[in-house]
Amino acid sequence: MHSLQFTAESSANGMIERDFVVGGVPGVLWSPASGADRAPLVLMGHGGGTHKKAPAMAGRAQRLVSGCGFHVAVIDAPGHGDRPRTAHDEREIAELFRARAAGEPEGPIVVRYNAYLAELAVPEWRATLDALQALPEIGADGPVGYFGINMGTAIGVPLVAVEPRITAAVLGQHWPDVLAEKAKQITVPIEFDLQWDDEHIPREAGLALFDAFASKEKTLHANAGRHKELPRFEADSAVRFFARHLGRAGVTSAT
């Protein structure tokens, strides 16, 4: 098992930010600045073309840490953030930009590339979870959630399907092509975000992925708007979802 090595630490707004490395994979762990008691852990997957400390990741972490007292961890996906791109990454990204410039559908390229990244990232996430649970403030028996939209869903669905320690997940905004069969293996509570007017993911495709989850408790949040117009209040809804399912119900989300 790879051990976790902290490489930097800072604090602000009641939250401690610690950079770490597990098996060569860089990540960040956000935790409450006060309180030594064990607390639930939420793993977050970032979107395509971004990184572990992207504004969306830091903002969601602040809500979960301040609103619920949770720990939140993100790792850079292969070819993202502080991780170098391979020749394969460069080819796929170039093909995506070419299709975008030509006005061609991006879906087939994104689905293919994200599936490739997921094969690499799922074992990395499981090793990271092993290392995080060795920390005394998290522990091996505490509840774990997963929160990832877009590419975070492409990696999150296969991860949740094989990782029994994850007991609740917020997902959304992806195609069902390679994820539907894995979604059928998932029975934990799910909150799923969908943009009704998504210009990349057809409405029927998003609904098909939601339908594929075998969870008895699953909730669809469909909002008007295009792909990048997911309302910010959905982050607050995710906080309430995790508060219910990870054991800290009754805690309100941060504003």
Results as ranks from 00 to 15, higher is better:
M1V: 09
L4H: 10
F6N: 14
S10R: 14
S10G: 14
V21Q: 10
G23D: 13
G24T: 03
V25Q: 07
V25P: 04
G27Q: 05
L29P: 14
W30N: 11
W30G: 08
P32F: 06
P32L: 04
A33S: 15
R38I: 11
A39I: 05
P40K: 00
L43P: 04
L43K: 07
L43T: 02
G45E: 05
G47D: 11
G49W: 09
H51V: 08
K52N: 11
K53P: 02
A54N: 11
A54P: 06
M57A: 13
A61D: 05
R63F: 03
R63V: 05
V72F: 07
V72S: 02
A77D: 00
H80N: 13
D82W: 03
D82M: 09
P84S: 03
A94R: 12
E95R: 15
L96Q: 13
L96Y: 15
G107E: 07
P108H: 13
P108V: 14
I109V: 15
V110Y: 04
Y113I: 01
A115P: 02
Y116N: 03
Y116D: 02
L120I: 14
P123V: 10
R126H: 10
T128C: 12
Q133F: 04
D141C: 11
P143D: 07
G145W: 03
Y146Q: 02
F147Y: 14
M151C: 10
A161S: 03
E163W: 04
E163R: 00
P164W: 05
L179K: 05
K182Y: 01
K182Q: 15
A183P: 05
I190L: 00
I190N: 01
E191V: 03
F192I: 02
F192S: 00
W196A: 15
D198L: 05
I201W: 01
E204F: 11
G206K: 07
L209T: 08
F210K: 04
D211G: 02
S215R: 04
K216R: 13
E217R: 12
T219S: 06
T219V: 09
A222K: 00
G225K: 01
E229M: 12
E229K: 09
P231V: 06
R232H: 10
R232Q: 08
A235D: 06
A238Q: 00
V239C: 15
A243Y: 01
G247H: 04
G250S: 06
V251N: 05
T252S: 07
S253I: 01
T255V: 10
